[in-house]
Design a protein around this nucleic acid. Structure first.
Lengths: 342, 342
DNA sequence: TTGTCGTAAATTAACGTTTGCATATTGCCA
DNA sequence: TGGCAATATGCAAACGTTAATTTACGACAA
């Protein structure tokens, strides 16, 4: 059906191998032959069959990406960045969504390996490294994204979550807040990092850490608004209520704000709220939301670049961990009306 | 490196072909042999090499999806739906983002064809069918998503945009609005459909269509907020201002509302606003936004199913166009506080 | 002249499957 | 006992490419 190298070779009376060499820019082919081949290639709009190429060469020019859930804009933007990063080197992206299920993630890893991906990028929803056994054995290079796994000495690209937690907390401290609460997530590295950043900022500013001001919940990614609201409700039950909250993500912050307003509290006058993730619409919410920007698209590109350079054998020169600096975006929910720009 | 059928065959003292047959559930293999093979397959965690399989069989068990931009949650959710739909049949998804550039889209089509995808799903950013030449020639089945192209007798899955436009406009009419404006997009089928729905609703309710109440802008997908705000500003310059606006998408609506509030107008009392797309955060905005829900995830699954059934040779039974019914989601921006549920 | 080298090309053998056809092996009936 | 399905299995040739090895042909130096 499609044009093959063989067809071009026969048309021109040269060997198929010669055509192959021209297409891969090998040096040992004469200038005139090369021109003739390229000419014919263009005429027929020949595209090499990547399956055959992959089978013969052992490289598929394909990179796999597994994300927990595309609905979180973070991962969607990440995927976009990866795609853009790969395009420059004409690699292609095979995308799999694990739907936040470790077992599914494990299966997808197997499938992508069977597909012959040259490298694998994974924003894992596993909490242990056990699902990575065949990946590690396969010798296919892989890069963790966003979420770090303990026990796995892997390449990593992600947010500097400690810095994110610090940035958010320091911002609240600078605004004079003293009883700063945190609504955080469970298990995964991002939660831990942000919590640690929060603690560090408190310590450096000589504010005592109080266990009762920290509420840990799970499923903040999927049902953040609902859970954030509940968590805030719990915080309001304390004898002395917090005057600020640093939330694990923006959805959670939206929920927290909703809860505060329902309780006739003012944001930020009574309680300042900051999230993390800086969603596209965060600036247009009921109370425009202060947040920490994570540049997900940039992270995707960095991950793609790292993967490509590992494949090119340059991994010695590259650090194994690449942390993207988070940025503070201050809006009404912490600094009030005067700061509004929208 | 990896386990091959050959290895399993040698271990068991049977032919490679027999193994192949077992794996593909061919009937002509004995029960005991079949069990032995499956046993060994499990022991070694064998995964068939999809590149080889694809080369030999001409089917890659791979479907390509090209979207204009993953940052629009519509397409991200769509991709998620497609991925879910394919997983059931253990097909995999190769994703490409065209970054809203027709030329890039054209290249990606070629690349995916070279990759041997069994079918192609395209939410096209082309305005003509010219970039589809090689696709049409290739005989690879393809399905347009969300955006219909004139001149191309293709399978299509998308929103019933006329119904969407009607639904939004009728809602405004039912609320007693008489001067209903529309901020719409350029060129692509979705804009045209929504505008037509708007016109139909007006006509059916004997409200005269006024050209000056329709503002057409481009780039509403990328820069909707900014452009929506400007467009609204223009509408406010009319001698007699509109009492309602139906916006092409939610971003545009957000911009429009921002503009109205800046002009000391109340939403919805002075001007009711409705968008389209029902973004995840639309219910938590400054003024919770009424919108038209398009069920993008469902659309993705439908598209995947359609593709799979076409591949299975069942295309006769399927209609070529599959329209997903939009749903009205009424919130404060049209019905005011009393309707609030959040 | 012979031998050595360099360049340009061709030949052959992979890569791991599937596919069509051929060959064993069985059971059954006449 | 021979013959014939029916059932199981295997062989060999694809699929379209790359990689390793070989050949052809001059040019050039000794």
């Amino acid at each position: 059906m499609a044009v093959r190298m063989k067809d071009i070779a026969e048309d021109l009376g040269v060997s198929l191998v010669t055509v192959s060499k021209v297409l891969r820019n090998k040096s040992d082919v004469g200038e005139t032959t090369r021109k003739r081949v390229l000419q014919r290639v263009r005429e027929l709009n020949y595209q090499p069959n990547m399956l055959a190429r992959g089978l013969a060469s052992g490289k598929s020019y394909t990179i796999g990406l597994i994300v927990p859930d595309l609905v979180h804009t973070f991962f969607a933007e990440l995927a976009k960045g990866v795609s853009a990063g790969l395009r420059k080197e004409s690699y292609q992206l095979i995308l799999a969504s694990a739907e936040e299920e470790p077992e599914l993630e494990h299966q997808e890893i197997e499938h992508l390996l069977a597909r012959g991906v040259d490298a694998l990028l994974i924003a894992s929803c596993q909490s242990s490294a056990s699902g990575f056994k065949s990946l590690v054995n396969s010798k296919v290079p892989y890069i963790l994204i966003d979420r770090l796994l303990p026990k796995l000495n892997a390449y990593f690209v992600g947010t500097d979550d400690i810095a994110a937690g610090r940035l958010a907390t320091e911002h609240l401290i600078e605004l004079g807040r003293q009883r700063i609460a945190h609504i955080g997530g469970k298990l995964i590295s991002t939660s831990v990092g942000r919590l640690n950043g929060y603690k560090q900022a408190l310590a450096e500013n000589h504010i005592p850490f109080r266990q009762e001001l920290v509420v840990i919940r799970s499923r903040l990614e999927e049902a953040g608004v609902q859970i954030g609201s509940n968590a805030m409700q719990d915080l309001l039950k304390l004898k002395q209520r917090p005057d600020a909250v640093f939330c694990y993500n923006d959805l959670t912050a939206v929920g927290a704000i909703r809860c505060l307003l329902n309780n006739k509290l003012r944001v930020p006058e009574d309680v300042a709220v900051i999230g993390c993730g800086n969603l596209r619409l965060s600036g247009y919410l009921e109370v425009p939301l202060s947040s920490i920007d994570q540049s997900p698209q940039q992270q995707g590109e960095e991950a793609a670049n790292l993967a490509l350079s590992v494949l090119a054998g340059k991994h010695e020169r590259r650090a194994k961990h690449l942390l993207v600096e988070p940025k503070l975006i201050a809006r009404d929910s912490t600094i009030g009306r005067e700061g509004q720009t929208a």
